[in-house]
């Protein structure tokens, strides 16, 4: 049975920096939703953007039809930021008063910051900006948790677990497992399930931050 969506189309942006597993995260989440019977459209930018640039996946979830692979400005319902300032960048373009945001707090410094030409905002500033712009904001140390699991790339799956924990989409651990069992070597399934569970549990355990 297909559950209903909070909004149709429901618009998700997954953002981060090339190499963080952004595309993989959007595929896994979208495949879960397709298995639930939804029409999903993903718009992605990769190619040159893989080389240290900002990466964005736009996911449109609908009961009915295909939507534009680019979400209209101000039209995100959920933003998943695998890198914090990329989350703010997406909020600036696609944010609105009812948007929900999940942020991985681990920065990836742009070259301009490494050289000292630009400044990376503090964690405090990041939290304040996101909280001010979102209806609901959750902050996770997903990369640190992923390192504990043995590989920082798993931060992307922890973030997908967090999305499940939010309860805004009809997805759960069993559905996640069925998707990754089809697309992943069996040896890697277990650690991905643990990553998903960490993200999910985190959202349950932490009270949402409101301004």
């Amino acid at each position: 049975m297909k559950e209903t969506l909070a909004k149709d189309p429901y618009n998700i942006v997954i953002t981060g920096v090339g190499g963080q597993g952004n595309v993989m995260a959007s595929r896994v989440l979208s495949n879960m939703l397709v298995r639930k019977g939804f029409k999903v459209t993903i718009g992605e930018t990769f190619g040159m953007s893989q080389r240290g640039g900002s990466v964005m996946s736009h996911i449109r979830v609908s009961s009915e039809s295909v939507w534009s692979p680019q979400i209209p400005k101000g039209g995100a319902d959920l933003i998943v930021a695998i890198e914090p300032i990329e989350g703010i960048r997406v909020l600036a373009g696609y944010g609105n008063r009812s948007v929900k945001v999940v942020v991985n707090l681990r920065p990836i410094y742009p070259v301009g910051v490494i050289t000292g030409e630009e400044e990376y905002p503090s964690e405090e500033t990041i939290r304040a900006k996101v909280t001010a712009l979102a209806a609901e904001a959750r902050f996770l140390a997903a990369t640190e948790e992923a390192i504990r699991l043995g590989n920082p790339i798993l931060g992307n799956i922890i973030m997908i677990g967090a999305v499940a924990g939010l309860g805004v989409l009809p997805i759960d651990r069993d559905l996640f497992e069925s998707v990754i069992r089809d697309g992943m070597p069996a040896a890697r399934v277990e650690v991905n399930l643990r990553a998903f569970a960490i993200g999910e549990a985190f959202v349950f355990s932490v009270k949402e931050e409101k301004q």
Partner: peptide, 17 residues
């Protein structure tokens, strides 16, 4: 609230991996 937000963020030039 969005005013000046993009300018405040460091830009992310592409570079070699």
């Amino acid at each position: 609230k969005l005013r000046g937000l993009t300018e405040f963020l460091p830009k992310r030039d592409q570079t070699f991996c």
